[in-house]
Design a protein around this nucleic acid. Structure first.
Lengths: 251, 251
DNA sequence: CGAGACGTTGAACCTATTCAACACTGGTGG
DNA sequence: CCACCAGTGTTGAATAGGTTCAACGTCTCG
């Protein structure tokens, strides 16, 4: 009955070349961060000196939950999974980070160990700075500490929203909401749909929505049949954003 | 079969008298906050001038989700529920705050509206300060902003842990963990058990663990039969902390 | 004492999981 | 270049954990 279309993945899975994290990119990333907006060129340059770069391939572990929280990272290129290991078996995917987002010891400035694990989801690179050096920079520039507080505060609100969703909404609603958020963050317009431009398996979606890959598959099949989305191996595209928002309950 | 014991509630439900939030208490609270430790008397006094007090009775709404985030609060006496309204029906209890804990616009310094609702859980009082005034204090004292960052970072870790639990642990484990946390925070030694010293209904526990009051009741009955806890109307006492920790999976 | 909130327990039901079989995709090596 | 195979995705059927609905018991306060 269903017609097979789009056999080739529209997501670019080609390995990013090492020179992607060039000096130019580094400065562009730092300057573009809302975090550092308002700083002059000289300040950015001096900040830049504190950062070192790190290239990664899909599946690489950047750090493990429980490791000493020695560094703070900013995604420059590609995407990074932030996950929490469940005592028994299945992992939980807390967040999928893209260019410009912080991870590592920002949320853990007072803590000595990372509370979660960071793993590369695609090829790419990140900039990183020692926790102590970042802390010193925050100490010197009170404005930056307030910005950091806002960033972490927003993450906290998101986490609380997610607790609410897990407590009271069904899988379809949670999957729809997750797709909506991802589309907003990683959406790339294609001919006739909005592609979520990162490798994304059913298992990834399951770990983000507290479901099983099988249930996610069923939900996506349903959405595809209704014309809300289109999907394939490791990718999802949105055909009808309004309908998706409706399924997500508009929160 | 089961013998009825302890018919009278061991939790003190008597209304706190208004004079509880006296000047002396206010200064004691502010000085005791890890947040302000290291500040001298004069600094505390000047801080004190910015705070106003607010007495509340059980069930009072302190602010509603969606209200303009104009103030930041510190619990002085009693306990405060932080909750999130689910679109359909049932609320989610995000946190139960006690003396010394912040709520209000700390997590929302960059946001103009409260993301959650605060409601008094017992009689008591809180100190509050205007968001703008607090922001200015943080601007003047970089050290305080870092402390605030640590506080919010810890809340974020807790929220992420909760997401993990909701994703992969059963109700009994979540209830056990919640009781353990509450016992740690509000535990008051009685003759032969550790009382969680705040009014706590089955519905409260249900809203904290993403379950129904009926299921919580069944779980507690089970724990009581095993001798792990003892409980009554609006209260729970821990008889065997080690066993409870085992049920909670030790996280 | 009576009313209403809180708590308990049972039984039917339902959503999502689990287990299982099978299909498709894309990369690897013979 | 093609065959193979591991990873990924789909679908069905049985199962289980928790919810829902309902009835009843119990405590507290006015």
């Amino acid at each position: 009955m269903s017609i097979r279309i789009r056999r080739r993945s529209p997501v670019n899975l080609v390995t990013t070349e090492p020179e992607h994290c060039s000096i130019e990119l580094r400065q562009k990333i730092l300057r573009r961060l809302p975090f550092f907006s308002g700083l002059d060129e000289a300040a950015i340059d001096s900040l830049n000196d504190h950062f070192v770069e790190l290239s990664f391939q899909p599946g690489d572990t950047i750090y493990l939950a429980g490791d000493p929280a020695e560094r703070l990272f900013v995604v420059a290129e590609g995407s990074v999974k932030l996950l929490q290991h469940a005592p028994e078996g299945r992992d939980v995917l807390l967040d999928l980070l893209t260019s410009g987002e912080f991870f590592g010891s920002l949320t853990a400035l007072g803590v000595e160990r990372y509370p979660d694990t960071a793993e590369a989801n695609s090829a790419g690179c990140a900039l990183s700075i020692r926790s102590a050096a970042f802390r010193q920079i925050l100490d010197e520039r009170p404005g930056l500490a307030l910005r950091a507080l806002e960033v972490v505060g927003r993450k906290l609100s998101e986490a609380n929203l997610r607790v609410m969703q897990l407590s009271s909404q069904d899988v379809e609603t949670r999957v729809a909401y997750t797709l909506l958020k991802l589309a907003h963050k990683l959406g790339k317009p294609k001919e006739d749909f909005l592609l979520i431009d990162t490798p994304l398996t059913r298992t990834d979606l399951a770990e983000m929505t507290a479901a099983t890959p099988e249930t996610v598959s069923r939900v996506l099949s349903q959405m595809q049949a209704e014309g809300t989305i289109t999907s394939g191996r490791q990718w999802v595209g949105i055909r009808n954003l309004d309908q998706l928002a409706r399924l997500a309950g508009d929160n």
